[in-house]
């Protein structure tokens, strides 16, 4: 659905996005995770054809975002950060306006507005003025707007920012149900949110992708991947012993005081080394601390 190749974006001399490449498969739910200023919003803006890239190519459903921008915009539903709306309009009126703007016919827009109002739980407030709605409802209006023209790809920039915990839960549930049938790309700076809603995660830092994997694998890599132990044994013996061990990807050894050696093990993906390390130490009768 989305192919991004060596995407770079500079604002003047400042590099906001630096040689980013990734793909999103049809039907996937992908989260961009990173601290503020990591380039998440910039990437999403380029994907939604609001900003052009400095270099690199972005293809959505096989269409180039730079040259076939209007066709691309027909296929995506984009909700920007802070979800800007027209506060003086009524919910239904706004959604119909947006549907017509995105090229729906009169009857079709009426039908789609009925559908998304129900889908997003807006039936009770469909005749209220947007400016009088709570933030949670406004977020739903934004989501309904992104969905109204039945896009292939939905892009959500920080969809839960500024909401209270209860509203966050309901918006997350909506995103999860969207992910059943559509391709969703969202950004967030909260790990638990991305974990709860996304199947795949891209971690961005200073404009670069530093990790891309499923949420589960990333968690394993972060929590169980590295083991540090101090073992009282000759350094050479330890090195021979651990390099032969299958679960160990890499090991750093450094002699410390009292004859101990500080060992830092990195496991191959998905392995938990703690028991293995303990068993080996016991088998050789070495002393172990920390």
């Amino acid at each position: 659905m989305v192919q991004v190749e060596s995407l770079t974006k500079c604002y003047g001399r400042q590099m906001a996005v630096d040689d980013v490449s990734f793909t999103v498969a049809t039907g996937d739910v992908v989260g961009l995770l990173g601290p503020n200023g990591a380039g998440k919003s910039t990437i999403l803006r380029i994907l939604s054809a609001y900003l052009p890239a400095t270099s690199g190519t972005v293809r959505i459903a096989g269409l180039d975002v730079a040259t076939q921008s209007e066709a691309v915009r027909r296929r995506i539903g984009y909700m920007p950060e802070n979800n800007p709306l027209h506060p003086e309009m009524r919910v239904r009126e706004y959604l119909k306006f947006r549907g017509r703007l995105k090229g729906l016919g009169i009857a079709e827009s009426r039908r789609r507005v009925d559908q998304v109002t129900e889908e997003c739980g807006l039936t009770d407030v469909s005749h209220r003025i947007i400016g009088t709605l709570s933030k949670g409802y406004r977020q739903r209006v934004g989501l309904a707007d992104a969905l109204v023209h039945s896009p292939d790809l939905i892009i959500l920039d920080e969809p839960t920012i500024g909401l209270d915990p209860h509203q966050i839960r309901s918006v997350r549930a909506m995103i999860q149900s969207l992910g059943q049938s559509r391709t969703v790309l969202l950004s967030s700076h909260i790990l638990s949110e991305v974990e709860a809603t996304c199947r795949r995660v891209l971690i961005l830092y200073e404009g670069r992708v530093v990790a891309a994997d499923t949420a589960e694998n990333l968690r394993r890599r972060v929590s169980g991947g590295t083991v540090v132990a101090e073992i009282a044994a000759p350094l050479e013996t330890l090195r021979d012993c651990w390099t032969a061990c299958p679960g160990v990807e890499r090991v750093d050894l450094a002699a410390v005081d009292g004859g101990y050696v500080r060992c830092r093990f990195e496991a191959t993906a998905g392995q938990d080394l703690r028991a293995e390390v303990f068993q080996t130490v016991v088998r050789h009768g070495w002393a172990l601390r920390s």
């Binding site: 609001y50 915009r73 984009y78 802070n82 800007p84 027209h86």
Partner: peptide
């Protein structure tokens, strides 16, 4: 100033 410019320009309108 309200940011609706972004939602406007990401619809298929020139």
């Amino acid at each position: 100033s309200t940011g609706t410019f972004e939602t406007l320009m990401t619809t298929p309108i020139s």
